[in-house]
Amino acid sequence: MKNAVTALLGRVEFPVLLAGLVIAGGLWGFEELMEVARSTTPHAFDTEILLAFREAGHPDSPVGPLWLEGVIRDITSLGSFVVLALITTATIVYLLLIRRWTSALLVFVSIAGGQLLSSLLKLEVDRPRPELVSHLVTETSLSFPSGHAMLSAVTYLTLGSLASRFLHGRTARIYVLALAVMTTLLVGASRVYLGVHWPSDVLAGWCAGFAWAMVCWLVARALQHRKAVEE
């Protein structure tokens, strides 16, 4: 049995194995965090982290210098629907102009599918926004999972993996993917600082977003190997 497992792992390429681990970990993490979101009282983990971003005894005053709040607002806008839609549209139009029809379709399905999945998950869990601290931006949608965190992961990882196919050299590819991950993490953290999401909302958004992005990447990779996607 051990030899069979070893032989099977030997035939699986490392990126595919890593994607599978991300998907499994993301699904497991999301399920655990969903239990936290459905609890009738906020988890200590959520409240402690949310309050850590506020001055002690002043839930309306974020920590840090005055200019930091403006910087955080700028960062969080990178995960807004409008910005992500503009980036996605520009990418799809470019792919159509260079006649990469299948790649354009895959980008649309990946990101639009992520948006639909995020909306359905919000309706399923039906968690209100935190009221423990003041909101530094106005939000009206439900809280779990964080749409900014999830859709940033889906969009930037999808576009990052697409861009890496056009780059030569391992260093350049790692840089682009690391930049996509870093942007996703910064957007998610900004939502907690602004007080519009519980930390568990953001973690769940990352879990779902990374898992969905890896599923779409595996599909694109399989189609590419079958010559269904343009090189």
Rank of each mutant, 00 (worst) to 15 (best):
L95P: 11
M34Y: 12
S61R: 09
L95W: 07
A37M: 01
H58K: 07
G70R: 13
W212I: 08
E31D: 13
P145N: 12
L186F: 05
L157N: 02
L8K: 14
Q115P: 08
L78C: 03
S118Q: 06
H148V: 01
R99G: 04
L18K: 02
L218Y: 04
G29L: 05
A228V: 05
R11V: 08
A220I: 08
V125T: 00
L218I: 11
G20F: 03
E139R: 13
F53C: 05
L50Y: 00
T140D: 02
A213P: 10
F166K: 13
D60V: 07
L33Y: 08
S152D: 10
L218V: 02
H135E: 04
I72Y: 09
L9K: 15
L17C: 04
A24G: 04
I49P: 07
S152V: 09
V36E: 04
L186A: 02
T89N: 00
W217R: 04
A222S: 10
T184N: 11
V196H: 06
W67E: 12
H58I: 09
V187C: 13
G169E: 14
L105K: 01
G20E: 01
S119I: 13
A153C: 13
I92T: 04
T40F: 09
I92P: 13
H197G: 01
E231N: 11
G10M: 10
A208Y: 07
L68T: 01
F81S: 15
V93N: 06
L106D: 05
L105Y: 09
G113I: 04
C207H: 14
A204G: 08
F30E: 10
K122Y: 05
L97H: 15
G79L: 04
P199C: 02
A172K: 12
L78V: 09
F166L: 13
R99H: 12
L66W: 10
S141R: 11
V133T: 04
R73E: 13
R100T: 08
E124N: 06
S141G: 15
W206S: 05
A104P: 12
P128V: 02
H58E: 03
T155E: 05
A104W: 05
A7Y: 12
S110P: 12
S200R: 03
P145T: 15
F210S: 14
W212A: 13
A19W: 03
A24K: 04
F53K: 01
A178I: 12
P128N: 04
V154G: 11
L68Q: 01
S134C: 01
L136F: 09
L120I: 08
A180R: 03
E139S: 05
E35V: 13
L151I: 10
A163D: 14
T102Q: 14
V93P: 14
V36R: 00
A149D: 12
V154T: 03
I75H: 15
P59Y: 01
